[in-house]
Structure formats: C-alpha cells, structure tokens
C-alpha cells in the first residue's frame, strides 16, 4: 500500500488534477456556448422566415457534430485547434475539441430543459410588456434551472468520459494514466485505482447535481 502510494501517488494526483482542469475549463466554455444556443433553438423553433432557417441550420450543425465520436473529432479538429489556440497538444490543445464536443450536446439538453417551461408564464410576462431578452433570463432560464442543473450534470459526466482520450494529444489525465500504465505497462492496480477514483467522482457529481436541482425546484 505504502509502496504503491510512493510509486504512483504523485502520478495519480497529477492526473486527477489534469482531468479536473480540462473538465472545468471545457465545461465553462461549453455552458457559455451551449446555453445561448439552447435558448436560440427554443426561440427559433416555432418561427417563420429567418427564425425557421436559423433553427434548421443549427439543428443540422448540432446533429452533425453530435454524430462524430470524440476520438475522431479530436483528430479531425487538429488543424482547426492549431489555428485557434496555437497548439493542438497538451491541455490547451484538448480544450477546443472538448468544447466543440460538449457544447452542442449541452445545447440540446438546454433546449429540452427550456421547452419544459410553462408557455403560459412566458405569455403572462409578454402581456405585462416585458422585453423578450428579460423574459429569457427572468422566466425561461430561471424556471428551467432545476432541469438546466441536471442537464449540466449529464454533460459534465460525458465530458469526464471524453477527457479519457486526452492522453492521445498529450494532455494527461486519469484516462491517460489508466491506459499508459495500467494497460500498456500492465500495472492493473493503477487501472483499478483510477477506475475507483472515476466511479467516486461520477457518483459525487451526480448526487450533487440531483441535490442542487431539487433545491432549485422550490416545492
């Protein structure tokens, strides 16, 4: 046990930290992009003319990205990533594909969360002469918050899964450790420990998400 900690402790701690870093940064960007996209999907959904086209285009783009597995997206985006952030390697390099992978997914989750909001309340606010942008924020997003939190939790867990492949571009992380040491160098204990850490992490995130969502519900 002590020997194991001495030999692998710092590697695993470092990897956990790298995973945290990748996940946190990607999640923040994914929310910044995904939530407004979700709003856009909902408000263009039933329109005509420009609105209709916006919805159709968004729909196709989102479905296209979502049909590509992360490992392929990661490689397909290499040139784009290099142009955007100057490198396609390391944590910096993996954030771009992680965000492009997660934001459309989150947009869909936000769309379904926002669609649950009672149309009647939105109408009541329109009838009071309140601006559409304020209705989005103070009615739609506010009322959808419990479902938004659950959606973010789901996206976050998916994101953690995707970071397992970050090692392929040298970004490290728990998945990378499990693969390189656990599998390639055949150290099964390392693999098991990373699995246990991931399991605990996911459990914690899901419970936290559930609790926060229930709290936001107010009933």
């Amino acid at each position: 046990m002590t020997a194991f900690i001495e030999r692998w402790g710092s590697t695993i701690v470092e990897a956990t930290f790298a995973t945290f870093q990748m996940v946190t940064i990607s999640l923040v960007f994914s929310i910044i992009i995904g939530l407004p996209l979700g709003v856009l999907l909902v408000i263009t959904r039933t329109g005509t003319g420009n609105k209709r086209w916006t919805y159709r285009v968004l729909n196709i783009v989102i479905n296209t990205i979502r049909s590509i597995p992360f490992i392929i997206l990661l490689f397909a985006l290499l040139p784009f990533t290099r142009v955007l952030v100057g490198t396609s390697m390391g944590v910096r390099g993996v954030i771009v594909p992680l965000v492009i992978f997660t934001a459309p997914y989150l947009a869909r989750l936000m769309e379904s969360a926002l669609l649950e909001v009672d149309r009647g309340v939105i109408e009541a606010y329109q009838a009071m002469g309140i601006k559409p942008i304020q209705i989005v924020w103070h009615v739609m997003i506010r009322e959808a918050k419990p479902s938004i939190i659950l959606g973010v939790t789901i996206a976050l867990i998916g994101l953690i899964g995707a970071t397992a492949m970050a090692g392929l571009v040298g970004a490290g992380g728990l998945g990378d450790v499990a693969y390189r040491f656990g599998h390639v160098r055949y150290q099964p204990e390392v693999m098991y420990v990373t699995i246990v850490i991931l399991v605990i992490l996911i459990q914690l995130i899901q419970s936290l998400g559930n609790t926060m969502s229930a709290k936001a519900k107010k009933d």
């Binding site: 009672d118 009647g120 107010k218």
Partner: peptide, 12 residues
C-alpha cells in the same frame, strides 16, 4: 391580464 392557469413563476 389573468389566466385560467394562473401563470406564476414556480421558482419564486
């Protein structure tokens, strides 16, 4: 305006 379904914010 008032409505059959009240249309209040549930979270407020």
């Amino acid at each position: 305006m008032i409505f059959q379904g009240f249309n209040l914010l549930k979270t407020a």
